[in-house]
């Protein structure tokens, strides 16, 4: 008994030391960065020591910050709008923004740097796109395909899924990302020089190219589409939309898609294979909501 009690005390002491040591380390780092902050810029020594730290750089290389994702998304969106024109029906746009925001707030990543925004494209192609950071585009034709609000929700939730899961950013070629982050590691603590800005912009330009060509020409992998569908089912259920709406919409799409087309056919796995990837509980028949019927017809009457 005595020995056991002693062991207990020893264990508590060991745990305490470990926890306190963590606090000390954190405190040292905090004081260090406060100094850097109060002087406006960090000293060269500090910057050098950060730059030398391989672990720090590899850690930063894992991802772009939400702020950088925001700028990537804006340029991807602008590039997309060189090919597709905005539709501009404010009533319809307002309606899909309400559906989209309700879903985004129920997603696992409701907050992005600049928030989620939805736009209708004036196109007869069956298509939808998600730019990093939450800029989501759907064509008039894909909306015409939707027979009710729940099916629109399924389309939007799938796109939100791509944003939540960072699929756009992952389309950037790995060496490109490392290139950008290498420039940042060196330049992270001071303003850009002309040359750094030029080379960083080139990397930015190529990254935008990687993402838009994946979205418009090559499409994501079947695995990514499956992940986005699974995320969509989760969002739909949380908000109270019928999760069968995704399968219902895919069945409609199956009927309309023309083999060899330049739209969804090119960039997505076949609707049938996507349905087979869904959980059985989400493959049933859709139950219509009378509460949502009237506003669906009103908002999309000119679509």
């Amino acid at each position: 008994m005595k020995i056991r009690l002693y062991n207990t005390v020893r264990l508590i002491a060991a745990v305490s030391i470990a926890v306190l040591w963590g606090c000390v380390v954190e405190e040292v780092a905090r004081v260090g960065t406060t100094v850097g902050q109060s002087t406006g810029v960090m000293t060269k020594e500090q910057a050098d020591s950060i730059n030398r730290s391989a672990t720090a750089i590899s850690k930063a290389a894992e991802d772009f910050t939400p702020e950088q994702e925001y700028y990537i998304g804006r340029s991807v969106g602008a590039t997309l709008l060189a090919k597709y024109k905005p539709y501009g029906d404010s009533q319809a746009e307002n309606y899909i923004n309400l559906i989209g925001l309700a879903l985004a707030q129920a997603s696992d990543r409701p907050e992005t740097f600049g928030g989620y925004h939805f736009m209708i494209l004036d196109s007869n192609e069956i298509n939808a796109f998600a730019a990093p950071g939450g800029l989501i585009f759907v064509t008039r034709e894909i909306l015409r395909l939707c027979k009710n609000e729940d099916e629109i929700a399924a389309v939007l939730a799938h796109e939100i899924g791509h944003v939540e899961l960072n699929h756009g950013i992952q389309a950037i070629e790995k060496n490109r990302k490392l290139e950008a982050l290498k420039i940042l590691a060196v330049e992270g603590t001071k303003a850009f020089g002309k040359q750094e800005l030029a080379s960083l912009t080139s990397t930015f330009e190529s990254s935008i190219g990687d993402i838009t060509s994946t979205m418009v020409n090559n499409g994501y992998s079947r695995g990514f589409e499956r992940e986005a569908d699974a995320a969509a089912i989760k969002m739909l259920s949380r908000v109270g939309y019928d999760p069968s709406s995704l399968a219902a919409m895919l069945r409609e799409m199956e009927k309309k898609l023309k083999p060899g087309g330049a739209d969804f056919v090119k960039t997505h796995p076949s609707p049938a294979s996507r349905i087979s990837d869904l959980p059985p509980s989400a493959r049933g028949q859709l139950t219509e909501s009378p509460a949502r019927r009237a506003r669906f017809e009103k908002a999309l009457k000119n679509i």
Partner: peptide, 16 residues
């Protein structure tokens, strides 16, 4: 961004 706890975060830098 300053380094904190051995982690280098880069905000306002890079793609801005």
């Amino acid at each position: 961004v300053a380094a904190s706890g051995g982690e280098l975060a880069l905000a306002g830098k890079g793609f801005n």
